[in-house]
């Protein structure tokens, strides 16, 4: 098991393995995304209160929920960096930060557009909205911290600590709608009964979209991590060979 762990930590091994994964990921994203978007835009019936605006949910909810997964991932990668000094973990941590910032930013933006219609305001200093905004600034903070510190080792450690500490915000975002009286509604309970609130016709396409966006997240993360591997290992022989092999740039 430890051998496997050490092997997984080898950037070269990850780079070569991800070469094999990427085509599969692209294909599954294409399928899931097409089915999900088609379903969400054309098939999902109008909501009894919101009408067609329910279609915003099929973007907002997947993006927001995956934005919440980014921070714990960064915290885990940070812990591995600090304890086992695994090179790959820090590369992943560095790559996930801008993606997390994008996801959080898009969750805030789509939420604002939705809120403008449903609530009558695009922003409120609501516990859910405020804690998500804090997460956005935490991602920006992690990116800024890394570029502010010259020594890569020190930068990696500082970012890892900030990621671990900042992860405390995630349960606050998640449960804010239950702990406090917020404008944002609590999470929906899905029902298997077709004649009930939140029936399958509402949540099955949502699950398709969530999986599509998860696969997209994996692709985006792998692409950035691969670039980071190339950049940091550019003096090692295997990268030099790879550069010479690469004909069509």
């Amino acid at each position: 098991m430890w051998l496997w762990f050490a092997k997984l930590g080898s950037p070269r091994w990850f780079y070569e393995l991800s070469d094999k994964w990427l085509p599969w990921l692209y294909v599954s994203m294409l399928i899931l995304m097409s089915v999900g978007l088609f379903w969400a835009l054309l098939i999902v019936p109008e909501d009894y209160q919101q009408g067609q605006t329910i279609r915003i949910m099929y973007i907002h909810v997947p993006v927001a929920s995956i934005s919440l997964a980014c921070f714990p991932l960064m915290a885990v990668a940070g812990t591995i960096t600090l304890v086992w000094k695994m090179k790959l973990a820090d590369m992943v941590a560095q790559s996930v930060a801008p993606i997390g910032a994008w996801f959080t930013g898009l969750a805030l933006a789509t939420g604002a557009i939705w809120g403008d219609q449903i609530w009558g305001t695009w922003w409120a200093w609501d516990a859910r909205l405020t804690s998500l905004l804090i997460q956005f600034f935490l991602f920006i903070g992690v990116i800024a911290l890394r570029s502010a510190i010259d020594s890569p080792d020190a930068a990696a450690k500082a970012c890892a600590v900030l990621a671990i500490v900042g992860a405390i915000n995630v349960p606050i975002i998640k449960y804010s709608v239950e702990w406090w009286n917020t404008l944002h509604q609590p999470a929906s309970n899905f029902s298997i009964d077709p004649v009930a609130p939140n029936p399958p016709e509402v949540w099955v396409p949502l699950l398709v979209m969530i999986s599509a966006v998860y696969v997209f997240f994996a692709i985006a993360l792998i692409l950035r991590t691969r670039n980071e591997i190339l950049q940091r290992e550019r003096r090692s022989q295997w990268v030099i060979d790879l550069v010479t092999r690469e004909k069509n740039v």
Binding site: P45, E46, Y48, I54, G120, L183, Q185, P186, P199, E201
Partner: peptide, 17 residues
């Protein structure tokens, strides 16, 4: 401001309920 609840369903499902 309007506060939305967490129940989504179509007009038909609502009517049936």
């Amino acid at each position: 401001l309007a506060k939305h609840d967490e129940n989504y369903m179509s007009v038909e499902v609502k009517a049936a309920l």
